[in-house]
Design a protein around this nucleic acid. Structure first.
Length: 304
DNA sequence: CGTTTTTGACCGGCGC
DNA sequence: GCGCCGGTCAAAAACG
């Protein structure tokens, strides 16, 4: 795959991923370009690119909410999520159109229409259940994807949602396996793929597919997720997720990390059954590199 | 006991 | 047409 690319530090991540991330891909990375940001909108991430005031994730709070990414109130400069067309055509096969523009990733969005791409039914099951069987000749319907890189010690980054691992595969040309997660919410078809960069083992590549149709499990309120920027790799600081304590927080914001206090809000965090899927043994949320969405590295900027 | 993780197998897509 | 590879399933094991 990246047989040759690897030598080039500037190589875009596109080659590393198994999901088609090339020009035809509907995947998108943080901090890429307007085209991708238009795809972001497909996720329901209404980015207002033209508005200089929206440098950060101000309006992208739903974005954050959608994928458990924290809002960004910091002057993140232009490095992030600059889109152009909130309703961009983006992925041709994107069928998320229905839920996309919902400013609120709240439950309200009817999950019903969520095309259970489960129809893949590729798993050696006899086509007994039509629902699980994909018609022949019918291509797998993929929802828009969104990938980002995070510098983290742990593979599975805490993002406010609960995930159930449903598979793991060895990745070609990479010593690190790739894990497949599915949102534990039965109605939610969001999937997530996690793998480590073969180039830089400290970087975790997380790819989301689909859009959550429910609230997050929740996080403690008010706080900061600090991120160490790749000083040696980035010219500009990568996104710093910051949420002012005490500020009005969107409930769906899953990523409110507190440095000083991290106790979960009862009734808000973890529905009475925080499972092992997200072990948070540490009483404190790490400020970085420890399992929370940390340093988000634009794929095209890493290995600088 | 219920839920999640692990793991091997299967299937489809794609490139050659 | 064949083989490789990615993605998914599902049974069994593990865990709290």
């Amino acid at each position: 795959m990246d047989d040759g690319d690897k030598s080039d530090p500037g190589t875009e991540f596109t080659g590393d991923s198994s999901w088609p991330l090339g020009p035809d891909s509907d995947s998108v990375y943080f901090f890429s370009n307007d085209r991708e940001s238009s795809i972001l909108s497909e996720f329901g991430w209404n980015l207002q690119p033209e508005d200089p005031n929206r440098i950060g994730f101000d309006d992208a709070s739903d974005l954050a909410g959608s994928f458990g990414l924290p809002d960004n109130n910091t002057s993140n400069s232009n490095s992030a999520l600059q889109g152009s067309d909130p309703a961009g055509p983006a992925g041709s096969d994107s069928k998320v159109g229905d839920a996309t523009t919902s400013n609120n990733p709240s439950v309200s969005s009817s999950p019903s229409e969520d095309p259970p791409e489960k129809s893949t039914g590729s798993g050696g099951k006899p086509p007994e259940i039509p629902n699980k069987v994909r018609k022949k000749g019918q291509k797998r319907i993929r929802q828009p994807r969104f990938a980002f890189m995070t510098k983290s010690e742990v593979d599975h980054l805490e993002d406010g949602y609960r995930w159930r691992k449903y598979g793991q595969k060895a990745v070609k040309n990479s010593p690190f396996p790739r894990s497949y997660y599915r949102c534990t919410n039965s109605r939610c078809t969001v999937k997530k793929r996690v793998e480590r960069s073969s180039d830089d083992p400290t970087i975790v590549i997380t790819t989301y597919e689909g859009q959550h149709c429910h609230h997050t499990v929740g996080f403690p309120r008010g706080g900061v997720i600090s991120h160490e920027t790749f000083a040696g790799q980035l010219h500009t600081p990568v996104s710093q997720f910051y949420y002012p304590a005490g500020a009005a927080l969107p409930q769906e914001n899953p990523f409110i990390i507190t440095q000083s206090h991290s106790q979960q809000m009862p009734g808000e965090a973890g529905d009475h059954h925080q499972s092992r899927a997200m072990p948070q043994p540490t009483p404190q949320f790490p400020t970085n590199n420890e399992g929370l969405l940390g340093d988000i590295v634009p794929p095209n900027m890493r290995n600088r």
